[in-house]
Nucleic acid binder design. Structure first.
Lengths: 208, 208
DNA sequence: TGTCAATTGTCAGCGGCTGTCACTAGCCTC
DNA sequence: GAGGCTAGTGACAGCCGCTGACAATTGACA
């Protein structure tokens, strides 16, 4: 069974994460100090850094959950599916089941608001983009394995994933700055944008 | 004519930038303190921050030069050229004329080595990616204007640029981790990867 | 040459982050 | 269930990036 110690640790971590996100989404990221977070949870500042490698990590921890979910979804896609199609399905699946992953720690609404904070805070956005690249590398490896290729010898997996990732970033950005900040809107945007990529690259824009 | 004051300022900035890059490429970014840079130039630490918004900015200043050049190249492309083709040409042009821009401040070789440092230093890579996104937004606006479109109403410019940017990032990464770290190698890689994007997205990978 | 303005140095201080060490509290064995 | 063991924590000191404020200096220009 679960030891008391482990449960206590989990509670401290959850409390820190919850409090951090709460403060970040209300006061803003830069305007919140680690000391304030620690104090609100009644823990020393040093302890905060024992749970999170840095202030950034606490801000991106929720995102990380969603990303892990997405990677898992890709892994579980049928092997006969075309790579790009698998990515598309996995992303949509990810959005549909967001609450299952997030709700265990914080309300989904807080996750969405935190997303906006990330997008509008330069240093957080930067860290977020870097993690995206790491994720893309992971996904490229998964696809390569599915197709029996060597990621380092054949650039196609990485290329496909990068293209897909590029489209998703545009989608995310459009979504986070738009009015309808709901999961459904994200779903619709994703489908719409993915459909437009092909034409946008090949057809003439002016003769719409 | 140029005032003495202005010349002195320019010299200080150049010295700071040169020294910073030199230290970053030899000792490493994290292992170099701003105090050390300032001391090496015989200037107070405070002065360093009057020339650069932060340590990061000094590390990315050379990159910024190349980026500005690239954006300019896109602007100067003939208006009847297809968007993606314009980007392709501008990138290649940028690489071919790199030395004209960089050599005025530091040897090109230092620029290349600094590139590697950026790619291998998480915090620098993050900042670099964020700047890339800003550049992509700029480029999208340029393309939209060329084609007489509204960037915020029509997603195609941003989509095309994001896709292109994705491919370029894969290219850069491959290049910076490969053996042939020359400008020519970058040229060849760029051409090769851009050619493979279409097939990678549409054709089946296994039946190569 | 003397006045004005731009540039720099000095000092003080905040916030993120880390190493160290002592202390507490859960765990496990006998 | 007493005692030893160790994971987890707090307290403290200190480095580094960065900023505001003010004084000192140095070029510009009448």
């Amino acid at each position: 069974m679960e030891t008391l110690r482990a449960r206590k640790k989990q509670r401290t971590r959850d409390a820190l994460l919850r409090t951090a996100v709460e403060l970040f989404t209300t006061r803003g990221y830069e305007e919140t100090t680690v000391d304030e977070i620690a104090e609100a949870v009644d823990v020393s500042q040093r302890t905060f850094f024992r749970y999170f490698a840095g202030k950034e990590e606490a801000a991106l921890a929720l995102q990380e959950l969603a990303v892990l979910r997405f990677v898992e979804a890709v892994r579980e896609r049928p092997a006969d599916e075309a790579p790009v199609q698998a990515l598309r399905q996995a992303v949509l699946e990810g959005w549909d089941t967001l609450h299952e992953v997030i709700e265990a720690v914080v309300p989904v609404e807080l996750y969405l608001r935190m997303h906006r904070v990330i997008e509008s805070t330069p240093v957080l956005l930067a860290a977020h983009l870097r993690r995206n690249e790491e994720t893309e590398d992971t996904i490229a490896r998964v696809l390569a394995e599915r197709e029996g290729l060597d990621v380092d010898a054949d650039p196609r997996p990485r290329l496909a994933v990068a293209v897909f990732g590029g489209v998703m970033r545009v989608t995310e950005r459009q979504w986070s700055t738009g009015e309808d900040f709901s999961v459904e809107a994200m779903r619709a945007l994703t489908i719409s944008y993915l459909e437009q990529v092909g034409p946008a690259l090949t057809e003439r824009w002016r003769t719409r």
